[in-house]
Amino acid sequence: MSENGKGTVAAKPRVATTSLAGCFGCHMSILDIDERILDLVEIIDFDKSPINDFKVFQEQCVVGLIEGGCCNEENVHVLRDFRKKCDILVSVGDCATMGGIPALRNTIPLEECLREAYVDGPTVHNPSGEIPVDEDIPLLLNKVFPAHEVVKIDYYLPGCPPSADALWAALSALLSDEPVELPYSLIKYD
């Protein structure tokens, strides 16, 4: 980017985020860093993320934040793409680290879950009794998997959601090449 021999403009590190089988609560927690988000956008650029609504990766990213585990084939696809496009992948929240609420179905056979949701449930109105199948609907996985059971994950931030302070502590450490060390008060599973 050096123009007129005036030196180079240092490119800002890029951060991508995604919500897989999650509830967007972790993304709310990212926004919960409040005015620190202004400091954040000074030092980083968001790449693919629901925060700026970029649907595809623009460039290679330094950090990728993963909310949610994998409950369907599209989640797996996106997660693998994040692994390729991000140098460091962070599992954010209990769904990414252990499956979370979606993983409550893991002790129930998939067929039974679908029958309950679309046929037998007390509030279901579905006269045809059909369970939706369409090539546009991502295929459900047999179980919900935490992110690290699908790709390699470099750091974990548990919590439902992790607090804004935990996210901030981890992000600032990663962006300044410091070791990520969370104090007792920032490791919480609830």
Binding site: T97, M98, N106, Y155, P158, L182
Partner: peptide, 10 residues
Amino acid sequence: ITAPRYPYLW
């Protein structure tokens, strides 16, 4: 511990 290193058994 931020995440267990073993696979979940459910």
